[in-house]
Nucleic acid binder design. Structure first.
Lengths: 113, 113
DNA sequence: GTGATAGTTAGCTATATGACTAAGCATGAT
DNA sequence: ATCATGCTTAGTCATATAGCTAACTATCAC
């Protein structure tokens, strides 16, 4: 279980901030310029830049510069590792429930005898 | 005992730490005592305690004390808000793709005339 | 009671985070 | 060439986090 995966840590960390989540939901609607992203947050540009770089390092967004304008876009598949992790936890949990159920059934059966 | 806080920021933050995720995956297998959780991490008890309280405040685990032993258990449904959030983002994304496709189809049709 | 066991609390340190201002740089418009 | 625009960099500050040690409390076993 010492599986080092900075991937998930970065993803979860990136999404732990409400400002960054709002940027993500904004970008899911379509690409936007840095300034467009800063206005609704009420935060200064450098602050937004910092959030954007966290999101970009987590792979959640991609950006490119055309002239002096940087356009940011969502990378929807970047959320997949989270979904996968959730599914894994659920699978382990359900396997455990199954074992418990099997055990309970067996106990009941033996009790009848 | 402890308040269930369904806040997304708390959830994501709690899961952003690899130690805490390893505790979660351990607890998904079944309940454990605090010491049992500390051994595989190689961390000191107070450190593990801190992680546990973060997880508990996020609603991800529940614990109860019997004598001098505290037993921790997973709260699997606490992960649901994350899944819901992912689903929401996906829905918005797909709605956007649909609009783009509709637009492309229309453009192609008009081009034929 | 004595001593071992299991948690807990308090307090310290180093690093990371999120916000800001101020100044810098490149590009587009005039 | 000059100026405005859009982003970038640098540097500051307050708070939060993750780890530690040491000392404390509460239970269980003799």
């Amino acid at each position: 279980m010492t599986k080092h995966d900075p991937d998930l840590s970065r993803l979860f960390h990136a999404l732990a901030d409400p400002t960054r989540r709002s940027i993500v939901t904004r970008l899911v609607e379509g690409p936007a310029r840095v300034t467009d992203l800063s206005v609704p947050t009420g935060l200064r540009l450098p602050t937004v830049m910092r959030h954007l770089s966290v999101l970009e390092e987590a792979g959640l967004i991609a950006s490119s510069k055309d002239g002096r304008v940087r356009t940011c876009a969502i990378v929807p598949e970047a959320l997949e590792p989270i979904r996968t992790w959730l599914d894994e936890q659920r699978a382990i949990w359900e396997a455990r429930l199954d074992r418990l159920e099997a055990f309970a059934m067996k106990a009941m059966k033996e009790r009848k005898e």
